[in-house]
């Protein structure tokens, strides 16, 4: 069965790029969010198998959004999208419950491998 993915990023450029990388690999993008508040709302509404979450977003940061999602869905599968120089923020997100991270600029093979790995682990341990 296709894994259902929510993409949270304020940049249309990045949302399209992630979609274009993962859809041919069998992932189904079920929704997009353009800020941290929308990411939390869309998660509640769509209950996706996995979220790609940008760290820097308007209204509510990706890290705050992770905390809010994890509070209601402790096994949520969230992969952070980070950039050069965001190591500390990535650590904070992982401590808040994100499962892994991918780094911009995206390397398509790495993105898919990371998502596959995270979902595999979630299947092993039983998801939300």
């Amino acid at each position: 069965m296709k894994a259902r993915v929510l993409i949270a990023d304020d940049a249309s450029f990045m949302r399209q790029m992630i979609r274009e990388i993962i859809e041919p690999e069998g992932y189904e993008v079920v929704g997009e969010a353009t800020d941290g508040i929308e990411a939390v709302e869309r998660f509640d509404e769509l209950q996706p198998d996995l979220v790609t979450m940008d760290i820097v977003m308007p209204k509510r940061s990706g890290i705050d959004a992770v905390k809010a999602v994890i509070e209601n869905h402790p096994h949520a599968c969230i992969v952070m999208c980070s950039a050069l120089g965001q190591e500390t923020l990535v650590m904070e997100a992982l401590q808040a419950g994100a499962k892994d991270f991918i780094v911009k600029p995206f390397k398509p093979d790495n993105v898919v491998a990371t998502l596959d790995k995270v979902l595999e682990k979630t299947d092993e341990h039983g998801g939300d």
Partner: peptide, 25 residues
């Protein structure tokens, strides 16, 4: 301004526009 510079940096890096990435960073 912080967020816009961050976004320009990420897009430019994806396209290999290193000079833009550097200034935005």
């Amino acid at each position: 301004i912080f967020r816009m510079a961050h976004s320009i940096k990420s897009m430019a890096a994806s396209l290999g526009f290193d000079s833009v990435t550097e200034v935005a960073h």
